[in-house]
Design a binder for these strands. Structure first.
Lengths: 230, 230
DNA sequence: AGCATAAATAATAA
DNA sequence: TTATTATTTATGCT
């Protein structure tokens, strides 16, 4: 059947700050070039002894004196906390390589959360993640008592989430003009559209689409009103 | 400065079940054909009154007698809960269209979470989402006392967590051909994709995705080069 | 160590 | 609503 985790924890209480949800983002690890075939690696985290089963492959609860249930619970809690902080695996990984040295890639975080690692490896990483989680929490808590601006940023050590490229947004002036036009004529000619675009400094296509969507909206409004839904 | 939410909530307590984290998944809305210019839409949720600012654009706390802070808090809580249940926007959307009628697409959920909607719209959707969240919670709680297998499935109404597709690896020959195509045309037509897929012996979808990712990579490269990061 | 990139999710343009 | 793009996550490989 489904490979279910044998975990059996009860509740998990999450405390999240009031601050602005630092919405996910951050340019991915520069897919820069120079694929230097890192030879000087120490690849210890993910490979300790050959062919050891990963945690999610084992069914027992204790292996080599390591409490797997505890690790499973922690992994879940960690992920949830990460999400509640609005952070990506990449961000955490980057933060960690600053704090803890360069051994915590996005991949490593991913594998830990999925428990796609051996018990020994997990045991080794766990305290690092615990420490980080604790600090992250404090950082968030602090922000509550400080300026109100949360300081997770300092903590992360990187630019916080550059905004995703925003879709075109029209200025109120532009909207005014567009709406005025729309009232006169919901189907402007190609020439008119070009004129508007030029006059307002938007791409012609953007203006064209605006009229499409506007007509759609009008149609919906009419329909709703006729249904008494508005 | 940053557009911060003016929310001021305190804690948020999340209770998560023990069950297997229903890892995210679910095929996206079939990228099927027939780009029928849906005219018969009902698009009511997103358009109530013309040019009303969306919630995240307004700074006040109460508009039209609607408590925006409350909605903001709820939106956050909703997202967190959704994540803690391991559900995607798509899944919630699908579940809702079964329960509540066909007006809750992934996009709608996305917009609600981002508060990229007008207060009125939000007010209209909120109770639906609240109800759903409440039920989802109960469903999870129940599972604890029952067989141990959680019944969120019944509730969601869809297959839970299809396994992630195995990562395809392309042969050097295939890559050569694909790259050659890409250089000629980064946006192959449906027919071309089908042809390539057939010729190379891969699934059509795999080839389609390859081009998506390739375009993405190209864009990233260009962006970096223009920033002198390369 | 951990990159490169396939696959999946979220957001947005059309 | 649907199609596609923007971003994140996961994994094959060495």
């Amino acid at each position: 059947p489904m490979n279910r985790l044998s975990t059996s924890n009860g509740e998990l209480t999450i405390t999240t700050s009031a601050g602005p949800v630092p919405s996910q983002n951050l340019k991915r690890s520069p897919s820069s070039l120079s694929p230097n075939c890192t030879d000087s690696s120490t690849a210890d985290l993910l490979v300790d002894s050959p062919n050891q089963p990963t945690i999610n492959q084992t069914s027992s609860n204790v292996v080599d004196g390591i409490n797997l249930d505890e690790i499973k619970d922690f992994a879940k809690a960690f992920k949830l906390r990460r999400l509640s902080l609005g952070l990506t695996q990449t961000q955490v990984g980057q933060a960690l390589s600053v704090t803890e040295g360069p051994a915590y890639s996005q991949s490593a975080i991913c594998r830990f959360e999925k428990l796609d690692i051996t018990p020994k490896s997990a045991q080794k990483i766990k305290p690092v993640l615990e420490r980080w989680m604790k600090e992250a929490e404090e950082s968030v808590l602090n922000s509550r008592y400080k300026s109100g601006q949360n300081h997770l940023t300092d903590f992360i050590g990187i630019e916080p989430s550059k905004k995703r490229k925003r879709r075109t947004s029209f200025t109120p002036q532009a909207l005014e003009l567009l709406n005025a036009h729309f009232e006169r004529n919901t189907h402007p000619s190609g020439t008119e559209i070009t004129g508007l675009a030029h006059q307002l400094g938007y791409e012609r296509e953007v203006i064209r689409i605006w009229f499409c969507n506007k007509r759609q909206a009008l149609k919906n409004t009419v329909r709703m009103m006729s249904k008494g839904m508005v």
